[in-house]
């Protein structure tokens, strides 16, 4: 068997793929967090719960209404995004003028409520969700078998990340968003409805989390607590990348996913904590994060 650094190449490539898949979810989730934080200055603790909601909506659409994966991929983000917008309009928007920590605490409470409710009705155990027939099976790449669905996750999340980046950096709506991030009062005085912009942004962030949830449903099991530990890792990703840039959030997500996968090959005991260790090192050397601008 071929080896590289004393490790079978198959294992190395296998973990590289697992790392890329995890990294896809880190990137999608930290992107949503960065978009919300950029404009609302709120750290959305409910992001993990919204990711879980996305997966559950897909599952319930399939079991209760017979709606398949492809429609779920569209419907679940819409439903969860709408729910997010509702929460923002009715409750979260009251907290903007206070210390930003209240936003964090509020969304923490929201996450506990949502996860507790789903646990009450669906139990704590995971439920399987099948990948669509078109994406089942595997292809032989010569050096390894690639499950088609896993390849799809990497490509789809990359496409979504680039799409959101283009939306924010290259469109008129995106320019409003960036302007409102810099100076909301001035933007409002130009006749742009900033409160509506805030609601849309939170909805967009929640929808991104839900999209990640649908993508994750066939890979991991659908369970009420699937997002609760993930969100803490994503927080560490965001700290490493620095909240300043959207692109930074995406790149850091993939990088840390791969770093985690590689750790699983060379030193499995540390794979749970490697991202946190990297975070601590980055904080010591570069407190603003890899892509952050503010000190």
């Amino acid at each position: 068997m071929t080896t590289l650094f004393g490790v079978p190449v198959q294992a190395l490539l296998g973990q590289l793929l697992v790392g890329l898949i995890n990294g896809s979810f880190y990137a999608l989730l930290s992107l949503g967090l960065a978009v919300i934080f950029g404009l609302l200055r709120v750290i959305n603790f409910a992001h993990g719960a919204q990711y879980m909601l996305g997966a559950f909506v897909a599952l319930l659409l399939a079991t209760k209404a017979g709606i398949g994966y492809w429609f779920a991929l569209l419907l679940a983000p819409l439903i969860v995004g709408g729910f997010g917008a509702l929460v923002e309009r009715t409750m979260l928007s009251r907290l903007y003028k206070l210390d930003h920590l209240y936003g964090l605490l509020f969304t923490f409470g929201l996450a506990l409520t949502i996860e507790g409710t789903f646990r009450y009705f669906f139990g704590a155990s995971g439920q399987p969700y099948a990948a669509p027939p078109a994406l089942q099976g595997a292809v032989n790449l010569g050096f390894m078998f690639l499950p088609i669905y896993r390849g799809w996750v990497v490509i789809a999340s990359l496409a979504v990340c680039i799409g959101v980046w283009l939306l924010i950096e290259r469109t008129k709506l995106g320019s409003y968003l960036r302007a409102a991030t810099e100076n909301p009062v001035l933007v409002q005085s130009f006749g742009i409805n900033v409160p509506l912009l805030l609601t849309l942004t939170y909805g967009l962030g929640a929808a991104l989390a839900a999209l990640a949830g649908v993508l994750a449903a066939p890979v991991y099991q659908v369970s009420p607590l699937m997002g609760s530990n993930l969100i803490i890792i994503v927080f560490a990703v965001v700290v490493v990348g620095g909240m300043g840039s959207i692109l930074g959030a995406i790149v850091t997500g993939y990088m840390l996913g791969v770093a985690e996968g590689m750790t699983k090959v060379f030193y499995p005991e540390a794979s749970n904590i490697v991202i946190f260790v990297i975070m601590a090192i980055v904080l010591i050397l570069r407190p603003a994060g890899l892509f952050g601008k503010d000190a």
């Binding site: 409750m91 009251r94 907290l95 206070l98 209240y102 605490l105 509020f106 923490f108 409470g109 929201l110 996450a111 506990l112 409520t113 949502i114 996860e115 507790g116 409710t117 646990r119 009450y120």
Partner: peptide
């Protein structure tokens, strides 16, 4: 068998929203 987290979460939100 009612999960404590639901109540904890709601109390959290109410505290933050109305009596900080």
């Amino acid at each position: 068998n009612f999960p404590v987290t639901i109540i904890t979460g709601v109390v959290f939100m109410v505290c933050v929203l109305v009596f900080r």
